[in-house]
Computed example of a mutant assay.
Amino acid sequence: MKIRVSAVQYKLQNIKSFEEFSKQCEHYIRNAEEYGAEFVLFPEFFTTQLLSMGDGQNPLTINELPGFTEQYRDLFRTFAVQTGMHIIGGTHVIRKEDKLYNVAHLFYPDGRVEEQAKLHITPTEVQEWNMDKGESFRIFDTDKGKIAILTCYDIEFPEIVRMAKAQGADVIFCPSCTDDRHGFHRVRYTCHARAIENQVYVVVTGTVGSLTNVDFMRANFGQAAVITPNDIPFPPKGLMAEGELNDDMLITADLDLSLLYEVRERGSVTTWRDRRTDIYPDWNSTVEG
């Protein structure tokens, strides 16, 4: 089975209304639809663009971002139903019991909306935005197979991707937001490592552009990529597709799931099968599903 995926390099720029945000999102959605995408990935924190709607010198604060949650969900739910695509709507900051969480949203073509909170949060998220970490992890069933959504810093922890693979996920979607080369390469290199270790596809993207009046969103360094295991059926560098660095664009690629099953059984290396579970934990026996 093949899956066509698109990943959006979302350009952050100051806006004056939710309608401007909506039109920019629709542009990417329609572009992905024209390419026949079945899954579309938006980046982490792309809805912080809404904070630029303040009066110029005084943008909205992170504590006001959850106030847009229903508008955001209604917008992307409509996109998913209208296009028949699964949309990983980046992440949006929501409030639960007076705590802020950085939450990825999966919008299904039938109108369902599922959530995955970011599990590992950075010092900036804690110290500057007073955010809390998510407490649970799950994979998502779709009519194209099982997927997982791990946000930015999450992908830097190999254990959680082991859990995703043990529960049957073949594709990991990774919305990210990095402000410089160091952060960008941390995420990119670990995406490649996770794809090799678990013989899965990783689809990653990030924000580009700048919000000139929003603290901690002034600088963005991003690039979308569709990453594969490094074995003969795949491109030698493990890159199925890659965007132009820091450009406003999207990429599209076809993921052949049968190739994953092939290399897991008889690849040049069989990293998942060759785990030394007599020495370290066997995630197959320590997670449900």
Rank of each mutant, 00 (worst) to 15 (best):
E34Y: 08
E242V: 14
E97A: 09
S176Y: 02
K237W: 14
D274P: 02
G56C: 09
T91N: 10
T228W: 09
N246T: 14
I88Q: 03
I172V: 12
D154W: 01
A253I: 06
M1A: 13
D231G: 04
P66E: 04
L60A: 03
F21C: 15
S136W: 01
L211S: 15
D74L: 13
G36Q: 07
A253M: 08
F39P: 00
F46L: 15
L250N: 13
W283L: 03
D154Q: 07
H105G: 02
N102R: 06
V263M: 03
L119N: 02
L51R: 12
G56P: 10
T47C: 14
Q57E: 15
C25I: 05
W283Y: 13
Q167P: 00
V202H: 10
A148S: 13
I87W: 07
G289K: 14
W283N: 05
E156A: 07
P109C: 01
V161S: 06
P59K: 04
V113Q: 04
Y108M: 01
G111W: 08
D132N: 08
R273C: 05
K165M: 02
D248Q: 14
A166E: 04
R30E: 11
Q13Y: 06
Q116F: 00
E128F: 00
G243Y: 14
Q82L: 07
K99F: 00
T47R: 11
E115N: 06
W283R: 04
R95W: 02
A117H: 06
Q127E: 12
A195T: 05
T207D: 12
K118D: 03
P281D: 06
R181D: 15
F173H: 03
I139S: 00
I279N: 00
T83K: 03
R276V: 05
H185C: 09
H192G: 05
A104P: 00
E26A: 11
H92C: 07
R264Y: 10
T178R: 10
E156M: 06
V93P: 07
P59W: 05
C25D: 14
P175Q: 11
R77N: 14
R275S: 08
Y280S: 07
L12E: 12
A166Q: 03
P66G: 05
V204D: 09
R218H: 15
H105L: 08
Y35A: 04
M1R: 11
F42N: 03
A241W: 09
M1C: 06
I251F: 14
W272M: 09
F234L: 03
W283P: 11
I172P: 02
R30P: 00
E19Y: 09
R77H: 14
Q223V: 13
H86W: 10
D110N: 09
E26P: 04
I155R: 10
V81A: 08
D180T: 10
R218E: 15
W283M: 08
K11Q: 13
F140E: 06
A104Y: 00
E197V: 08
V214K: 15
D256Y: 05
E156N: 08
I155T: 12
V200K: 04
I121S: 01
G89V: 06
